[in-house]
Design a protein around this nucleic acid. Structure first.
Length: 470
DNA sequence: ATTCATGATTTGAT
DNA sequence: ATCAAATCATGAAT
């Protein structure tokens, strides 16, 4: 029992054994009583003595029970109780007013607001932990830029979970303790008067104590979130160079789609995924769709700005893709030959609008230049022709094999296949190979999309230095 | 320390 | 929303 009293003391600084008892004892004998009875006086003396000394004695459970029972059953008890009540009435005035409503702590409010803003304390958004974890684990769901944030989110979810479980724990402990204290007080209220106000006050004290602990929790949670946030934001803000492989993949795409280097959303996703895989690299870097967009934006503008600077790179990637493309084309050509050499459509069929651009563009510069110098048996399509007739891949003659190309990139790549296999000797070091084919006089890729603007079969803008010297 | 390369951000136009 | 262009800011090479 006195253990509990100690707890109470430690907790609220309110002494249960204290205020009313010794303040009121011995002050005055029960008035309103014409106490002529000696036995009664004796009784009162007894019980007072008992009460006075009760806190000095170390009582074990049984003893305490006994004595309490004795006190409760004492016939003078009601009278004494009322006296205590009266005394308490008087002293109770001083208790009140000491501390009233606690004003909402501005710091606590700040913390709460921040936690809410960061989505820690608020309602779980977007499926919460399960979804985030699933997204992070699977990560193959092609969820656009959320890959970038999934790590952040999962960590945030982790923090939130910890926060909530801790909060719950504290709340539960608080409730438990409150009910415990209330039971205690209620039980004590049989011996001494305890007003509801007092209980309320006690509960308030307990809650304040616990909320200060909660604030610590909130503070540390805020700190954790801040750290997490700054780390991720910094990681996003700070520039980390892409891995070699990623750059290669992007460059490959760029140079093989030089005529229209605007990857679609799906293409970007694909590229992002491909770049992020880099399985061998381990934690190289996960590249997101928006990063792919950034890369292409930068690449386009920088390529356009200084084409000469990129030629070496262009040739490099052209050669690189040419190897694979050569196989594809060769296979296609062979296919068209073996299957039905007379059927022009048997190879790569392509859509009109895609082809028009590329064929015209190719014809505009490279093909024109190269083909005029070589075997001469290329009949270049003059307008949006469906098929690109070609010959002499690797010296073999697939004469008459007409290959329609349906993948746009292959048209671009085709140039390099040809340039490599058809003896484009001056390409290296020269500045012809990667003239801005897709760029029109206005310097825009977009305008090149208009078929009519690139149809002119004669030399393009600025007569791209034809090497018809032969 | 300086310079260049490059990813990211901002701004303004469409 | 997406792009071009300018700009910022950093990583890496010198």
């Amino acid at each position: 029992m006195d253990e509990q009293a100690r707890i109470m003391q430690a907790l609220g600084g309110v002494s249960l054994a204290g205020h009313s008892v010794q303040g009121g004892m011995g002050l005055q004998p029960p008035h309103g009583h014409d106490g002529t009875d000696d036995g009664r006086k004796q009784d009162i003396g007894d019980i007072l003595h008992q009460i006075m000394t009760i806190t000095d004695q170390s009582l074990d459970e049984a003893q305490a029970k006994n004595r309490k029972h004795g006190l409760n059953c004492h016939r003078m008890k009601p009278a004494l109780f009322s006296v205590l009540c009266e005394i308490k009435e008087k002293t109770g005035l001083s208790i009140r007013g000491s501390q009233e409503e606690d004003p909402p702590d501005p710091q606590l409010m700040r913390l709460d607001n921040m936690l809410l803003a960061e989505g820690v304390s608020g309602p779980e958004k977007g499926g919460g932990s399960a979804a985030a974890a699933a997204a992070a684990a699977a990560s193959g769901g092609a969820s656009d830029n959320s890959i970038e944030h999934s790590d952040y989110r999962s960590k945030l979810t982790q923090i939130r979970q910890i926060y909530h479980t801790e909060l719950e724990k504290y709340e539960q402990a608080c409730n438990e303790f409150t009910t415990h204290v209330m039971n205690l007080l209620r039980e004590q209220s049989r011996t001494r008067p305890i007003s509801p106000k007092e209980i309320e006050r006690m509960v308030g004290i307990i809650h304040r104590k616990f909320s200060s602990i909660q604030m610590q929790l909130k503070q540390s949670t805020c700190e954790a979130v801040m750290i997490l946030r700054s780390r991720f934001l910094d990681a996003r803000r700070k520039r980390r160079n892409f891995s070699k492989q990623a750059t290669e993949i992007l460059n490959e795409y760029f140079y093989s789609h030089l005529s229209n280097p605007y990857p679609s959303e799906e293409a970007k996703e694909e590229l992002a995924k491909k770049c992020s895989i880099t399985v061998s690299q381990g934690v190289g870097s996960t590249i997101t769709v928006s990063q792919v967009s950034n890369w292409f934006g930068n690449k386009r503008i920088r390529y356009k700005k200084n084409i000469g600077k990129f030629q070496e790179e262009a040739n490099l990637y052209a050669a690189k893709t040419a190897v694979t493309a050569a196989h594809a084309v060769a296979a296609a050509v062979q296919n068209s030959q073996t299957n039905s050499p007379t059927t022009p459509n048997s190879g790569f069929q392509m859509k009109d609008e895609e082809f028009q651009l590329d064929s015209a563009e190719s014809k505009n510069t490279l093909l024109t230049n190269m083909f005029t110098g070589s075997s001469g048996s290329f009949n270049l399509p003059n307008s949006g022709d469906m098929f690109l007739s070609m010959q002499s891949l690797n010296g073999d003659s697939y004469q008459g094999a007409q290959v329609g190309v349906n993948v746009q990139s292959q048209v671009d790549t085709l140039r390099h296949v040809i340039s490599q296999t058809a003896g484009y000797s001056e390409a290296l070091g020269g500045n012809t190979m990667y003239s801005p084919n897709g760029l029109n006089a206005n310097g825009g890729w977009h305008d090149a999309m208009t078929p009519s603007s690139v149809i002119s079969p004669t030399e393009g803008p600025g007569s791209v230095h034809s090497d018809t010297s032969n």
